[in-house]
């Protein structure tokens, strides 16, 4: 359903943003920008990357496709299949676990009607359990898009989700 057969052409704004990262590295080291390029392309494609996107990144950076595939499959922030409009990443590592990340997962699962790893039927939310996000003194916490939400309580979670729904609904 989501497999694309046509080649993807990176938009001028995407290319411009990748170029801003390329200048950070020696000219002969274009591969250094693979991670940045994948992130930029992913953000421009509703949060995920198809095989065709990987090919487009490889072509633009003039690196072998396998180099891009290795990176795309190694790092946890790259999504290789479609995800919800909002990706909710809940840290369940020890500091968060000690402060009730189980309750956070339970509350989100109940409210959204999905388990960790799943996406709501309307495509609005994906719920994930993730490893330590480095905000242990704000535990329990979750990340939605670029933003960290800390010291979570059920009320706070509801408020955060309500405002997301309100803003985009």
């Amino acid at each position: 359903m989501n497999s694309q057969t046509e080649d993807i052409v990176l938009s001028p704004s995407v290319r411009e943003e990748i170029d801003r990262w390329l200048v950070k590295y020696p000219p002969e080291r274009r591969q250094s920008a693979v991670m940045a390029a994948l992130r930029i392309v992913q953000e421009s494609n509703n949060g995920w990357l198809s095989q065709k996107h990987l090919e487009a990144v490889a072509a633009y950076l003039e690196v072998p496709l396998i180099a891009v595939q290795e990176v795309a499959t190694f790092y946890s922030m790259f999504e290789l299949s479609p995800v919800g409009k909002h990706k909710i990443c809940v840290c369940t590592n020890i500091s968060c676990m000690l402060r009730g990340s189980d309750d956070v997962i339970a509350h989100l699962s109940k409210r959204l009607g999905i388990k960790p790893g799943e996406t709501t039927a309307d495509g609005r939310f994906t719920l994930r359990e993730v490893e330590c996000l480095g905000a242990c003194i704000g535990a329990p916490m979750m990340q939605i898009e670029h933003k960290y939400h800390e010291k979570l309580t059920p009320e706070r979670i509801d408020h955060i989700l309500d405002s997301l729904e309100g803003r985009h609904g």
Partner: peptide, 10 residues
């Protein structure tokens, strides 16, 4: 100085 952003890998 340039920043390089990771992508999720301890």
């Amino acid at each position: 100085i340039y920043t390089h952003l990771g992508a999720g890998a301890y």
